[in-house]
Design a protein around this nucleic acid. Structure first.
Length: 568
RNA sequence: GCUGGUGUAGCUCAGUGGCAGAGCAGCUGAUUCGUAAUCAGCAGGCCGUCGGUUCAAAUCCGACCACCAGCUCCA
């Protein structure tokens, strides 16, 4: 961390030497590297980065010592103002009264910095500038956009090389690349952000949905389905019109205004409201694999991770106030079962609190937030707090999963909502015969099927567990005379419930094996004279290689066990 | 949406002002083969779109669209 931060100072020094008009913003170390933000009238090109790198080499070669000094606030301000560094002046003004204001000097270059640093610039052995991108000053889009240069550094050249190699390797797992290669899905210019699922992608998706339905039925959920287009009035009532309009698509039918749903909750509420409920029924858990559309900014679209229409594995739980925490614990348990037991993911949990543009009083938010916090503590889960990051109708717990480049994506979420029940005047009849207001919990486990499929693809690098694999086995006859037997094998396995393909093309076994390996098909079955005579199949596993001959029964038993246990 | 980059065959990519190219994939034929690529032939293009400059544009200029990285925002 210190090491990379020192490298960012060298970057800043090089930039100041080459472009004296550049104003410095901030330059922290980040995971795997560092960046520095500059305000420069011209834009940096890749050639500029090379020039800057060469200047950095010179600074490293000069082995300039890093020297620390401290100044009182007014002198510090004077120093940076004289240098025309208005961003640094703003940073100093933002520091608390008792904070020490320190600077670091290397050669002619001085920068406001808390430190620490390596002793001298010569300690930086291997570095590389990776990219340049825009970034708003203080991360606020109302502020000026600065130019951010990203880079990384390592104590040894070989470590830098390894790191760059790992970045390349990670790209091979990219779900966008694998999605094409494995023929899972596509996106087209005709519908940016609106993905098309191909037959193999649908097999995967349907497996996820079947499993989801099964587990939810076991856990006391009922399934519903609500329409995609509903009257605008509904969205005005729910608060989406006021808080979410810019993300919604609208249409009109017979001169009436309608909206395309960005969330499933208002529709689900209409189902709850369609009859009277007794306290004895609660909690009522209504699940919906609901297709929602949201207008996302064009610059954020990303394969299946970030799209403009997606299917949420949603559910809304209507319960009594006293049941909220227990319900949250149940959802956490179900989520952990999915993530940890079934898929084997690493994830982290965040708790998001009341945002600026929220509905409802602080007291209600406090209550809801405490319920979430209480459930997290009950389960002893570590979590990070995101102040002001909740939904407009309630605070939430989020489960975040990693993609191939280490970026994290929110998948599961649990949101407590006292407000929608209010807006829609929901009630149930209590023991006392009076009307009472239920609490609503919104939750998803996969999050969206699309994003989850993207994460799964990268997590397994396309080599899906057998239960999810679009094709579980492929059968190849060695020559034409083995064709009829190979077909019989294919049919028998198919009848046993295995997704199996027959590859009778006139190609060598090696060719077919290679193709099946590239497709990450878990099992390859070779049949030739030996198998034909003994009534067996020669089994090859995509990771374990040649497993030798097995009877058809033994093979199908093996695969069926893997399918049923969801072996990874 | 903002900053920067990219856009040529299904995929990966060459081609920098003068007839649009390669490998893989596809199709046809030959080969009948034992665990990651058999050989030969054929076909495949609105060079992202629209406009401009030029005798001539994939190539230069402009606008737009899409994609990539990052920022802001979110499942």
């Amino acid at each position: 961390m210190v090491y990379r931060h020192s490298t960012s100072h060298i970057l800043a020094q090089a930039v100041k030497r080459l472009y004296p008009e550049a104003r410095l913003a901030i330059g922290p170390a980040i995971a795997d590297g560092f960046y520095y933000d500059f305000d420069v009238p011209r834009t940096f090109t890749p050639e500029d980065l090379e020039r800057i790198e060469r200047e950095m080499e010179a600074i490293v070669a000069a082995d300039l010592p890093f020297e620390r000094f401290e100044l009182p606030r007014d002198q510090a301000l004077q120093l940076v103002r004289r240098a025309g560094e208005e961003y640094k002046a703003e940073l100093i003004s933002g520091l608390g009264p008792d904070e020490v204001i320190s600077f670091y000097r290397q050669g002619e270059f001085v920068d406001l910095c808390a430190g620490p640093h390596v002793p001298s610039t010569g300690r930086i052995k291997a570095f590389k500038l990776l990219s340049v991108a825009g970034a708003y000053w203080r991360g606020d889009e109302r502020n000026k956009m600065l130019q951010r240069i990203y880079g990384t550094s390592f104590p040894k050249a070989s470590l830098l090389k390894d790191h760059l190699f790992r970045l390349e390797e990670a790209k091979r797992r990219d779900h966008r690349k694998l999605g094409v290669e494995l023929d899972l899905f596509s996106v087209h210019e005709s519908g940016p952000g609106f993905p098309f699922f191909h037959p193999k992608g649908m097999v995967l998706r349907n497996q996820l949905e079947d499993f989801w339905r099964h587990e939810h039925a076991k856990n006391g959920y009922q399934e519903i389905r609500t329409p995609i287009i509903l009257r605008q009035e509904l969205w005005e009532r729910s608060g989406h019109w006021d808080h979410y309009k810019e993300n919604m698509y609208f249409t009109s039918i017979d001169d009436e205004n309608y909206a395309i749903k960005p969330m499933n909750c208002p529709g689900g509420i209409l189902v709850y409201r369609s009859k009277l409920h007794s306290y004895r029924e609660l909690p009522i858990r209504l699940g919906e694999l609901g297709l929602v559309h949201r207008h996302e900014l064009s610059g954020v679209l990303h394969g299946l991770m970030r799209v403009r229409c997606f299917t949420q594995d949603d559910a809304h739980i209507y319960c009594r106030p006293g049941q909220v925490e227990e319900e949250i614990v149940r959802i956490i348990d179900l989520t952990e079962y999915f993530y940890r037991e079934i898929f084997g993911f690493d994830y982290h949990v965040e708790l998001s609190t009341k945002p600026e543009k929220a509905m409802g009083s602080d007291e209600v938010w406090e209550l809801a937030t405490n319920a979430l916090r209480g459930a997290l503590e009950t389960r002893g889960l570590k979590y990070k707090v995101n102040e002001g990051d909740g939904a407009f109708y309630g605070p939430k717990i989020d489960f975040h999963l990693r993609d191939c480049l280490g970026r994290t994506w929110q998948c599961g979420t649990i949101q407590v909502d006292f407000l929608m029940p209010e807006k829609f005047e929901l009630h149930y009849i209590g023991e006392d015969g009076e009307r009472h207001r239920p609490v609503m919990i919104h939750r998803v486990i996969y999050g969206s099927l699309e994003r989850f499929i993207a994460i799964l693809t990268e997590h397994f690098a396309g080599a899906f567990p057998v239960w999810l694999a679009p094709v579980q086995a492929r059968v190849f006859p060695i020559t034409d005379r083995h064709g009829p037997y190979a077909r019989e094998v294919t049919e028998t396995l198919g009848r046993a419930g295995i997704r199996v393909e027959f590859d009778g093309r006139n190609e060598k076994v090696g060719y077919k094996i290679r193709e099946a390996q590239v497709q990450k098909i878990p099992y390859m079955l070779v049949v030739g004279d030996r198998e034909l005579e003994s009534g067996t199949v020669a089994v090859r596993h995509r990771a374990e290689g040649d497993l030798g001959a097995m009877t058809l029964d033994a093979f199908s038993e093996r695969v069926l066990v893997e399918i049923h246990t969801k072996a990874r």
